[in-house]
Design a protein around this nucleic acid. Structure first.
Lengths: 224, 224
DNA sequence: GTCTATAACCGGATAGAC
DNA sequence: GTCTATCCGGTTATAGAC
């Protein structure tokens, strides 16, 4: 965001606070980790933690950003290999979940906060636009490099729709108590199959009217 | 919920606190109304407000219940007249929104709390099951009494799916800033058309495989 | 001007005296 | 049943140190 000159000391303190916070978030969840504890464990004061991070949420924004970078790298590998839409779609969702897995507990406790549409951590909010757009762009790549032929009108809306679908999978994953998240991975198989079939069918001339009205609906919803 | 014998004084104080709370919620929203202010305006103490209501959320519950009863009555009228699935579906959704409209502001501020899946006010939670089942049942009536022929496997899942759709409309309505909520009513027209077309098509033999796998997905999702 | 710390404030919730 | 005093945790004000 901003890049004022920073002394070594400052940068060290800042990353110490962030690292401590992320460790505690992982270990105890979001609500259970107090700002006082973060400051304590980082060996500094509460006021100082607030000097570096204007709010508790801002610590999470930093986490979002670093996660984003990791996910991008993981997806590049998948998209270079997989060429079917289904393989690309399921592949990048699995890869992204893999990166998120160590933080499953944090995501569980985060959901309650992120579900609030007025909260800056909400995945649909203005404040997360950058991260969200980067994520949507990966689905754009997934659609763009796939073998399947898809009608142009659909292709335009697909990245956002598939990102939305992926958010649904993430939601399921957050609540998935099965060991190794097998239920989530099963759901990815089932649903990506279904969705790719739907996309293929939607491109058939027979279903053009239905596709048109569905797309019209999507467009009107986007203008909220 | 519970009906222990209550002295006149007690009942008076309790309803005074509740009435004061609901007025302030309407005037200022949920978060902006502090428990201290409620107690103050009701002419009692903070501790006493907590004696009658274990939490701020509990003040909202009676509001929920009374709304439910009003909505049921409004829907009965619609379902007695409308015979097409589309008319019944759009009709009961419009009717229910009509009942909710005077409370739009309260719903706006309430959404943030109700979106939290661990909160008792969450529409998917255990604590709202009764109200939710009553609501789903109305969609069951809407499907059951409609003229259209719908395959049995689909018919079974439809009430819950349509309730889910209606929750989406409510979400849109909460955020709808257009005067008279015209955008919401437009959305109801567009989407109920689309959904009824989808239901009709899904019952065609050609699309049986797609329908089967979609229903399989729905069933597996319900077991979360 | 860049850090760090201490002492508050605020609002939901609780304890315990009367 | 009703109150006052208090806890708790996010956040802020602010005073000083470097």
């Amino acid at each position: 965001m901003q890049k004022p000159k920073k002394s070594n000391k400052s940068e060290t303190t800042r990353s110490l606070i962030l690292a401590t916070a992320l460790r505690l978030f992982r270990e105890r969840g979001f609500e259970e980790t107090t700002m006082r504890l973060i400051a304590d464990e980082a060996g500094t004061s509460l006021g100082n933690a607030y000097y570096y991070f204007r709010s508790k949420d801002e610590l999470i924004h930093s986490f979002y950003a670093s996660l984003q970078i990791e996910q991008l790298a993981a997806c590049e590998g998948i998209l270079a290999v997989e060429k079917s839409l289904r393989g690309r779609l399921a592949g990048i969702i699995r890869a992204q979940l893999g990166i998120m897995t160590p933080y499953h507990r944090l995501f569980m406790s985060l959901f309650k906060i992120a579900a609030d549409p007025t909260n800056t951590l909400n995945p649909f909010s203005e404040d997360t636009r950058e991260v969200r757009n980067a994520s949507i762009h990966r689905f754009s790549d997934a659609v763009g490099g796939a073998n399947e032929r898809i009608t142009d009108d659909l292709k335009e809306e697909l990245p956002m729709l598939l990102w939305l679908y992926h958010m649904g999978i993430v939601l399921f994953w957050i609540y998935d108590r099965s060991s190794g998240f097998v239920r989530t991975y099963k759901l990815i198989e089932l649903s990506s199959d279904l969705i790719c079939n739907l996309i293929t069918m939607a491109s058939l001339p027979l279903l053009a009217p239905l596709r048109k009205s569905a797309l019209q609906l999507v467009v009107s919803l986007r203008e909220i």
